[in-house]
Design a protein around this nucleic acid. Structure first.
Lengths: 169, 169
DNA sequence: ACCAAAGGTTTTGAAATAGGACCGTTAAGG
DNA sequence: CCTTAACGGTCCTATTTCAAAACCTTTGGT
């Protein structure tokens, strides 16, 4: 009849899959980046990013639906809407910065990055985004491990157990 | 004749667009996440993530082509390959962690996160990923601005100028 | 009142994706 | 050894998504 039980770790269990369902496509991330840069009007998004209008409309709808962005009147009383980041959307800031930094370093490299993100007050570039331990130590991927959290389902727990076993050999 | 000059800021100029061209789709990021968790075999990726085999093959090819991952023999002398992260791929670590943290906080929220990323040594969760100024101040999106970097093209410069002007009003 | 641009929606064709069938290799068991 | 099952893919087809352009309605400016 169906095969519900073969559904892999996706919508239900996994923060990554859930998050990526919302903003995990090229256009959405570029839209959010523009929004951080201060863009809010439909046509500005379209011009700057260069995507089809229907796609832009769909993405904006989806981002609004998931409360990453919201519509506000462009001017008070206007029926045209501006698209601005909600707190949930603003919380994506480190991700956006991290993606830009990665591209700067690993794609542009020695040629120099085209865009620099700087502290408004001092004008100096922000620090590279990194992962820190509770005590402030700098961590890389081999220093951490994934464990089941408070909201873990049985399937997640099993999944993590399998991974832990695999990484021991 | 053509419209080269309406090409928006994409492949050539923008770290984000270039980066997202490589890993900016749901599956790629999930694959990379699994790789960080220690998965390396084709069938394990497939089982854990639950995507079609042909799609997985395409994604792995692309990630290898862009040197985010690489093929190594599963055991020495074996013709079957394992897929492992290169240094370029390992550098995506903060992005992966940040996405997971965002989902934990903004999707699962009070229900509790299903997966917890912890420091192996102490077992305590890593700090939330954040953006810091040169001097170590915690920055949010309104504290920073984008300026033209050393590799900026004229079009990027213009683009940023337009944004700067817009954000002044 | 007129015109041009903004902000979409609809339609249509092209491309990517999902699912399954298929198939040569490899590893394990008898 | 020899068989068998699982592995690591490729190929084909149906469905979904994307892209480009045309179209339409509303708004702001003159």
């Amino acid at each position: 009849m169906n095969q519900m039980n073969t559904t892999p770790l996706q919508e239900r269990d996994c923060s990554w899959a859930r998050a990526l369902h919302i903003f995990g496509d090229k256009w959405s991330i570029l839209i959010i980046r523009e929004a951080f840069a201060g863009v809010s009007k439909f046509s500005d998004f379209q011009r700057n990013i260069g995507l089809a209008k229907n796609i832009l409309a769909t993405r904006l709808d989806m981002l609004c639906e998931h409360e990453v962005m919201m519509r506000v009147p462009q001017r008070e009383g206007s029926s045209r809407s501006a698209y601005v980041l909600t707190p949930k959307g603003q919380a994506l800031f480190p991700i956006i910065v991290a993606i830009g930094q990665w591209g700067d370093k690993w794609i542009f490299g020695s040629k120099g990055e085209p865009v620099r993100i700087v502290d408004k007050e001092t004008g100096s570039p922000v620090q590279p985004i990194a992962v820190f331990s509770h005590s402030g130590r700098h961590l890389n991927s081999s220093d951490v491990t994934m464990t089941a959290g408070p909201g873990a389902s049985e399937r997640t727990t099993n999944h993590l157990a399998r991974l832990a076993k695999a990484s021991n050999r």
